[in-house]
Nucleic acid binder design. Sequence first.
DNA 1: TAGTGGTCTAGACCACAAA
DNA 2: TTGTGGTCTAGACCACTAA
Lengths: 245, 245
Amino acid sequence: MYPETIDRYSKLPFYQQLYEILLNKIQQGEWQPGDMIPPESELIENYQVSRNTVRQVLDMLVNEGLIYRQRGRGTFVAHPSLEQSMTRIVSFTEDMQQREFTPGTQVLSATLLPAEAEIAAKLQIQTGEQLACLRRLRLADGEPMSIEESYLVHSYCPEILQHDYAQQPLRKVLETDFGIRIASAKQVIKAILAPPELIDLLDIKTPAVLLFIERVSFSQGKIPVEFLRIYYRADRYSLFNELHE
Amino acid sequence: MYPETIDRYSKLPFYQQLYEILLNKIQQGEWQPGDMIPPESELIENYQVSRNTVRQVLDMLVNEGLIYRQRGRGTFVAHPSLEQSMTRIVSFTEDMQQREFTPGTQVLSATLLPAEAEIAAKLQIQTGEQLACLRRLRLADGEPMSIEESYLVHSYCPEILQHDYAQQPLRKVLETDFGIRIASAKQVIKAILAPPELIDLLDIKTPAVLLFIERVSFSQGKIPVEFLRIYYRADRYSLFNELHE
DNA sequence: TAGTGGTCTAGACCACAAA
DNA sequence: TTGTGGTCTAGACCACTAA
């Protein structure tokens, strides 16, 4: 399924290929949190690249918080942390597991509609172009945690609404059915007063506060694919991150 | 004032020394946003280090969003972006300038008080130890933008309250008077309903929503120095960031 | 002592941008 | 064509950890 060796004639640089290979081993759980990954010497041997190339890849994974190094001991898979959810694209399921909640999902609606100007601009399409809109209520330990409104450019992923998203992650369908992998995203984080129509759905009392995120997600080719609005119950959800000089 | 060459007998690695030198040129404005910085070949020549070492330093600055590279053209100082304020320690003044507001500050109070258990734990000190508390109203274009409550471990910086913080940045006093440089921080971001006592100060109407940040800042020696609460008017302030795989 | 990651060097060839 | 950054190699010596 995924390549295990570096294609020396590929247009992709060695370090990107090796990054994909190692990332995959972590994401697929072949290497578990806390596991030591093979030492640099072994990666050099296995993949037939220089130490600098190996270290370039490990640096990337360290920067993303996926692994950490200990001099004299080795390199280890990091335990998922809440900080990661601020800089890495993390699924709702992963996010909730890190917060030690049991995740759940209810589909509120799945419809086609023409793009409003505001959303069209963010997705770099024409106003009125068809969008697939998926609204989901997200649960944590059975209680409402957030509402997610996804708007997908329908021409990139026709028939996308013919799945049961209570069971299946949207991201996985995008990847397996349409070959679209979300590689990066930009988002805005706000605090808002809960709109009346969300009060009942989220099972909160007015006046209630929400942490509100608007996100544009891009494919590997940097094409905007999805516009997402997430309304989090502020009494149950907060964000963490680290700053440096 | 700041070293301009690499001390080849220092305990600090070359790349850290070079990082300090280049960071300083950017922060002091010697190199302005949009300026091309010297090409790698020149940095190699100037500082007598290898290309890998130069590139290691430039990689760090790129990761922090301070510079960007264009193949075939050169390396340039980045224009400050709103995204940076999510991962870099940015002063209120800088942050407002990036948002194209004119910043202003009013000191609400400056007092000494004993540490509550909650704050003491975050600052890794004993409950009841003396804290310097500085409360400031922050203005943008003359209108209230946020309230900042700083709690500093007083034994690290005695007499710190004997300055006029309407004029002088707290961070600068810490550095020049006490040799404390804030190098990293951890923060939590929440949405809250405005507490009644802040309503008037922020010139908002109830029920009002705030973006609320609690931050612990660490010195270069990783010692917690400051606990900070910031209450932002949600109608005027939001956060931006980028995510990746 | 053996094995790990941390730092550093001196080269090489390539792709891209501007003149 | 020249100069820039992008990728890659093959070595070296060091500091730290664990046995």
